[in-house]
């Protein structure tokens, strides 16, 4: 098991480095000039060109791209991802303080997804081709089809503006705070993100469980005298949830993309908000740093999926 994990980690490190190279080159290949983005157009005047060149030189943007990469890579090895061109703050610090809110939002959303998808998918599978199943299908397709930013705006209108139950933006009330305050801010974005994830997951749970319900071992369990509830929960569902691990892990990047959008809508102080701003400002170090955080998250999720498989499925040999 340990050897398996170590080997997977080594492979992931190589992948991670390659992603770093790709992102670094791609960001610089994009049209535009970050230094020009820093200067307000009305400040552009005689002599600005010299200032721009000086600034480019200062930021090392005039060096050959490979030299720039090598410099960045060596710094990155020490944990230094450079500083934002705009705020001059270290990128790792900027991202670190945003990581927590994003993970809080995503993990809550994932929990909500599973709490909806597993029971709903199970009921839909058992009562397939009945009105319950069709209702679950309509709900799934609905939340898949409606963009989450739209749901977000509707939710803000209803629950914040009309009903006044929940705060519309941010992660906490300035000056206020505490767990319940954060929770109140969290409910809407997490519920909407979770709902969007629950749509496809419900379909997967249903499909997977239907497959398992026709398996021979399910018939064996019935022949032993097990009740329908026991046959489903102790036998079929356990087997049907194994492939779900992969589906969830594959969906995490997608969920992150959804989170980026919802963070804008709800002004949630997460990485998505930071990343969108960095892209519009061509803040290279922040964009690269963000991409690497996302890559790391995806790789870690895949690693967790592999390990989880080995734990829940006795057939997976890890030697």
């Amino acid at each position: 098991m340990t050897a398996f994990v170590v080997r997977r980690i080594l492979v992931n490190i190589i992948v991670f480095i390659l992603i770093g190279i790709g992102v670094f080159l791609l960001v610089r290949a994009a049209p535009g000039d970050p230094v020009r983005m820093m200067i307000r157009p009305e400040d552009l005047q005689e002599g600005s060109e010299a200032f721009i060149q000086g600034r480019r030189e200062e930021l090392g943007l005039n060096d050959p791209i490979l030299v720039q990469y090598a410099r960045w890579f060596l710094d990155a090895l020490t944990g230094d991802l450079g500083s934002s061109f705009i705020s001059r703050q270290p990128v790792s610090g900027l991202l670190a303080e945003r990581l927590g809110p994003t993970i809080l939002l995503m993990s809550t959303a994932l929990g909500i997804s599973l709490l909806i998808a597993i029971p709903l998918g199970t009921v839909a599978a058992i009562r397939r081709n009945t009105s319950v199943d069709y209702a679950a299908a309509a709900l799934s397709l609905g939340v898949i089809s409606i963009p989450s930013f739209f749901l977000g705006i509707v939710a803000i209108y209803v629950f914040s503006l009309q009903l006044g139950w929940l705060p519309s933006s941010g992660m906490s009330t300035p000056g206020g705070g505490g767990g319940t305050d954060v929770l109140q801010h969290l409910i809407m974005p997490a519920a909407i993100l979770g709902l969007a994830g629950a749509g496809p997951l419900t379909r997967y749970v249903r499909g997977s469980l239907i497959d398992e319900l026709s398996a021979d071992y399910v018939r064996t369990a019935e022949a032993k005298g097990g009740s329908p509830a026991r046959v489903v929960t102790r036998h079929a569902l356990r087997n049907s949830l194994i492939p779900l691990i992969t589906i969830i892990m594959i969906n995490i990047p997608q969920m992150l993309a959804g989170a980026v959008v919802l963070e804008q809508v709800f002004a949630w102080p997460g990485m998505g908000q930071l990343a969108v701003r960095a892209v519009t400002q061509q803040d290279y170090p922040v964009i690269v740093g963000f991409a690497l955080y996302v890559a790391a998250l995806v790789l870690i999720c895949n690693l967790i999926a592999d390990i989880a498989y080995a734990i829940v499925d006795p057939r997976v040999k890890v030697s």
Binding site: D216, Y217, T220, K224, G225, S227, H235, R315
Partner: peptide, 23 residues
């Protein structure tokens, strides 16, 4: 159900699939 597996028990054709793989 109280008869299944108690008074009448079954042995199935394919032992590869008739047992739950994760139990």
């Amino acid at each position: 159900r109280s008869i299944r597996g108690a008074e009448i028990a079954m042995i199935f054709q394919d032992p590869m699939t008739a047992l739950n793989p994760v139990v």
